[in-house]
Simulated assay, not measured.
Amino acid sequence: MTNRKSTTTTLGGIATAVLLTFSLAACSGGGADVAAFCKASEDLDATMADVDPSDLASTGGAFTTLAAEMEKITAPDDVAADWKVLTGAMGDAGAAFTELNDLDPTDPAFVDKATAVGDDIQSDEVTAAMKNLETFSAENCKA
Rank of each mutant, 00 (worst) to 15 (best):
A116W: 07
R4A: 12
K142A: 11
C27N: 14
K131H: 10
A57N: 11
D45M: 09
I121F: 06
I121L: 15
A46F: 07
F63W: 06
G88M: 05
V79Y: 06
P105Q: 01
P76N: 08
S137T: 06
T87V: 08
A67D: 05
S137I: 06
V85C: 02
S123F: 04
V18N: 11
L86C: 02
D50V: 06
L133P: 01
V79S: 01
S123Y: 04
M70D: 03
Q122H: 03
M90G: 01
G31P: 00
G61N: 14
A80G: 00
T7A: 14
I121Y: 00
T59H: 05
A36S: 12
S54A: 13
G29E: 04
A32G: 12
V51S: 05
D124N: 10
V111D: 08
D104L: 06
T21P: 03
C27Q: 13
R4Q: 15
S137V: 02
T16N: 13
D82R: 01
A128K: 15
S23R: 14
L44D: 02
L133N: 00
P105A: 07
D112Y: 07
L100Q: 06
L133A: 00
E134C: 03
A143F: 12
M90W: 04
K84W: 05
T115G: 01
F136C: 05
A143H: 11
A93Q: 04
A116Y: 05
I14M: 10
T127E: 12
L11D: 01
W83Q: 08
E69R: 00
S41C: 08
A109T: 14
E71T: 13
D102F: 00
A75W: 02
K142P: 03
G91Y: 04
D107C: 05
T74M: 09
N3F: 05
D50P: 00
A81L: 11
A129C: 13
G118P: 06
D124I: 03
R4C: 08
D55L: 08
A114F: 02
M70Y: 09
K72S: 04
T2F: 12
T98V: 03
E139A: 15
D112Q: 15
E42N: 14
W83G: 04
V34D: 12
A68N: 13
T8G: 07
M1R: 04
S23F: 08
D120V: 08
S41W: 06
C38A: 11
A68G: 13
T87L: 07
G94W: 00
A109F: 09
A40I: 00
T106I: 04
